[in-house]
Structures are given as structure tokens and as C-alpha cells.
């Protein structure tokens, strides 16, 4: 799953296995699953995470994603890179539990 950081397309494909709902600026993400034991792997994303989730298909690399983020939000590249890293870490620590 670590390879996801190097290939965001994998994340794009995995998105179809989740149901999402925006609540205010945040996003609730619930995995479709075939087992009751995995029901509690749902999680939330803040406004930045929500934006990354919604735009990940537009990026081929982490640098692309950082660029999309700095274009949208009033933040510098270092902050955007940290936000992307934080987002990917959250997914990497959550998604392996459900797939």
C-alpha cells in the first residue's frame, strides 16, 4: 500500500470501493465491505483532505497534487506537501485494514 504515494492512480481506482458524504467542509468516507467485522473502518477528512480526495484523479504525482492544492488554498508549497503527506499517511494506515 506504500506504493500509493508513488502512484496516485491506485487511490483513484480504490475510490469506487467507498461511499462518501460531504458534511460541511468535511467528508465522511465509508468502505463498501463484505464483512461485518470491518464496519468500523470509516473515517473523516477535513477540508484539505476532502479537496485532495475529490481531486486526486487530476494528479499523476505527489508534486501534481501539491500544485493543485497551492492553486486552491492560500498556502505555500511546504505546507501543501505536509498536508498531502498527512492525507496519504492517513489513507495508508486505514485502507490496508479494509482491503
Amino acid at each position: 500500500m506504500i506504493r500509493m504515494t508513488n502512484n496516485l492512480k491506485i487511490l483513484s481506482e480504490l475510490k469506487s470501493q467507498f461511499v462518501t458524504r460531504a458534511i460541511g467542509d468535511e467528508l465522511v468516507i465509508v468502505p463498501l465491505t463484505g464483512n461485518v467485522a470491518k464496519m468500523n473502518e470509516l473515517f473523516t477528512l477535513n477540508a484539505t483532505g476532502k479537496f485532495i480526495w475529490e481531486n486526486v484523479e487530476k494528479a499523476d504525482t505527489v508534486d501534481d497534487l501539491v500544485g493543485i492544492l497551492t492553486d486552491e488554498f492560500d498556502i505555500d508549497t511546504d505546507k501543501a506537501r505536509n498536508d498531502v503527506a498527512s492525507f496519504l499517511h492517513k489513507l495508508e494506515t486505514t485502507l490496508p485494514k479494509v482491503h
Binding site: 468535511e26 465509508v30 461485518v36 464496519m39
Partner: peptide, 25 residues
């Protein structure tokens, strides 16, 4: 979102069908 996910975790769910998840959310 935190309130919704925390309550949802205790709902009985058969989450193989996206319609069921959407209805709960």
C-alpha cells in the same frame, strides 16, 4: 462529520450495497 461517523459505527449495517450506506449517511 465526527458526530456522524461515531454514531454510524454503532448502527447495524450490511455495507455491501452503496445504497444502504448512502441511506445511513
Amino acid at each position: 462529520a465526527i458526530a456522524v461517523t461515531r454514531v454510524l459505527a454503532f448502527c447495524i449495517q450490511n455495507n455491501f450495497d452503496p445504497d444502504f450506506v448512502n441511506n445511513n449517511l
